[in-house]
Amino acid sequence: ELVLALYDYQEKSPREVTMKKGDILTLLNSTNKDWWKVEVNDRQGFVPASYVKKLD
């Protein structure tokens, strides 16, 4: 499943990933309501769920 980055996000820990507004990311896990695991540029990590939106 793919998600769209709604905002820029700068990683604050090694478990997170940086994304730019408009990026298309692969959603790996959305079981946590606050932090979703995504893959971007061959890196996996977490981003705030409120910063991304699922693409239909």
Score class of each variant (00 low, 15 high):
42 D>H: 13
30 S>W: 09
32 N>W: 08
41 N>E: 13
14 P>K: 10
45 G>R: 01
52 V>P: 02
40 V>E: 02
33 K>V: 10
12 K>I: 07
50 S>K: 14
2 L>V: 09
20 K>S: 09
50 S>P: 07
28 L>E: 02
26 T>H: 13
17 V>T: 06
9 Y>Q: 00
14 P>H: 10
29 N>F: 07
23 D>Y: 05
21 K>L: 06
5 A>K: 01
2 L>C: 11
39 E>F: 07
7 Y>I: 08
30 S>V: 07
27 L>F: 03
7 Y>F: 13
6 L>I: 09
56 D>N: 13
41 N>L: 12
15 R>E: 12
54 K>T: 09
31 T>R: 09
9 Y>R: 02
31 T>M: 11
52 V>K: 00
43 R>D: 04
39 E>C: 13
24 I>D: 01
33 K>M: 10
5 A>F: 01
32 N>F: 08
49 A>V: 06
41 N>Y: 14
31 T>G: 11
24 I>L: 09
31 T>C: 12
23 D>M: 14
5 A>S: 05
14 P>Y: 09
10 Q>W: 13
15 R>Y: 12
55 L>Y: 08
22 G>E: 02
47 V>Y: 01
32 N>Y: 08
2 L>Y: 14
22 G>S: 03
12 K>M: 11
8 D>S: 08
55 L>M: 10
14 P>T: 09
49 A>Q: 06
8 D>A: 06
15 R>D: 14
17 V>Y: 03
10 Q>M: 13
19 M>V: 10
26 T>D: 05
51 Y>A: 13
39 E>K: 11
55 L>W: 07
2 L>Q: 10
54 K>R: 14
46 F>I: 07
43 R>C: 06
35 W>N: 02
48 P>A: 02
37 K>Q: 12
32 N>R: 09
46 F>Q: 03
30 S>M: 09
23 D>S: 08
6 L>A: 04
4 L>R: 09
9 Y>D: 00
48 P>C: 03
50 S>H: 12
7 Y>K: 14
29 N>T: 08
42 D>W: 09
23 D>H: 05
21 K>D: 02
17 V>S: 02
40 V>N: 15
51 Y>D: 04
8 D>T: 05
47 V>H: 00
7 Y>C: 15
6 L>V: 07
9 Y>K: 00
27 L>G: 01
19 M>T: 03
41 N>K: 14
16 E>N: 06
47 V>F: 00
49 A>F: 02
53 K>H: 09
34 D>F: 15
4 L>G: 03
39 E>D: 07
10 Q>C: 12
4 L>W: 07
23 D>W: 11
31 T>V: 10
53 K>P: 02
11 E>L: 07
9 Y>I: 01
50 S>V: 09
38 V>C: 05
29 N>E: 15
30 S>A: 13
39 E>G: 11
5 A>Y: 01
3 V>I: 09
26 T>R: 15
27 L>N: 02
36 W>R: 01
42 D>K: 11
1 E>R: 12
45 G>T: 02
50 S>W: 10
52 V>A: 03
29 N>L: 09
28 L>K: 06
53 K>C: 15
6 L>D: 02
46 F>M: 08
53 K>Q: 14
38 V>Y: 00
31 T>Y: 09
41 N>C: 13
34 D>H: 15
1 E>A: 13
48 P>I: 02
47 V>L: 03
13 S>C: 11
31 T>N: 12
